[in-house]
Nucleic acid binder design. Sequence first.
DNA 1: CCTATGCATTGATGTAAATCAAGAAATGAC
DNA 2: GTCATTTCTTGATTTACATCAATGCATAGG
Lengths: 157, 157
Amino acid sequence: MKKINVKKGTLLQQKGEISSKIYLVESGLLRSYTIDKKGKEHIYMFGPENWLVADNCEPNTPCQLFIDAIEDSIIYVATKEELLKEGPDLNALLKRLETMQNRIIMLMSSNAKERYEHFVKTYPNITQRVPLKMVASYLGITPEALSRVRQVLSQKT
Amino acid sequence: MKKINVKKGTLLQQKGEISSKIYLVESGLLRSYTIDKKGKEHIYMFGPENWLVADNCEPNTPCQLFIDAIEDSIIYVATKEELLKEGPDLNALLKRLETMQNRIIMLMSSNAKERYEHFVKTYPNITQRVPLKMVASYLGITPEALSRVRQVLSQKT
DNA sequence: CCTATGCATTGATGTAAATCAAGAAATGAC
DNA sequence: GTCATTTCTTGATTTACATCAATGCATAGG
């Protein structure tokens, strides 16, 4: 498990690579995202401190996700084989499944405003660290739509 | 790990229950779903033969999902504790993560037609076994929208 | 310091899908 | 079998959000 420093903007993994790695964030902020056929970016996950960032693709197939650093970060890198050998953290895996379940339910049932509220709950401390357009991309809405949602929410306070 | 027979329509688990179980489907078809505050149903997952159906909620907290049988089914039931003790199937877990990742990307980036095509790929053999309105609920669209999508797709063949 | 580049906001317009409504078809109960 | 209930389809209308476009603000680089 190698420890590395990366500068803001560093691309750690490209869509299409075969042996996608696992990244454990010690400090800083990563993001994983995909680009669809229309060239549009969709953020799959943010990786702040202590999060595990990875592409859960099948072994030995091209991965789907790009991973890069939104902030200068210190991260541990491991191959999936390494992690499997030493026995992965089951609790972390279950926690991950829970997060994804919540996200799926959110995406199926929520409008723009509810999605934003869900995001604030899931990532309480990173709203100020991430540009609005990335939050919008994570939520599956446009920056314009998110801007308007935040406007009405801020008027309520 | 108990083996049980359930009739079509049997409710195995309610939203709000504390000790949610794990269900391994031997034959038949289960579904897990939630009901939002407007009373609308959202299907989280179908469970055909050999699928594992479960609510990935935190231990000892109320679960989110209802689980019931869409067909007469034969299933194995286990508590999460049991499964953790005997060491869960890592490959199945990773496969599950992959499925969910694909679903999330689909929900963020696809329109009604693409969602339906994604569904047919993910569950090739159950389109005929599941009423249209449930497929629509799984895809996060209305039955009306799905009906229209299928109409234009069938004209193309 | 000034200018270029990217980001956020705001307004006008377009559009996919939701909602509402009614009828047809399928399914199930008796 | 008939009747009742649910599901599916089709059409008309509405709506939330996307798209397009313009402007204002930052931040970064020379």
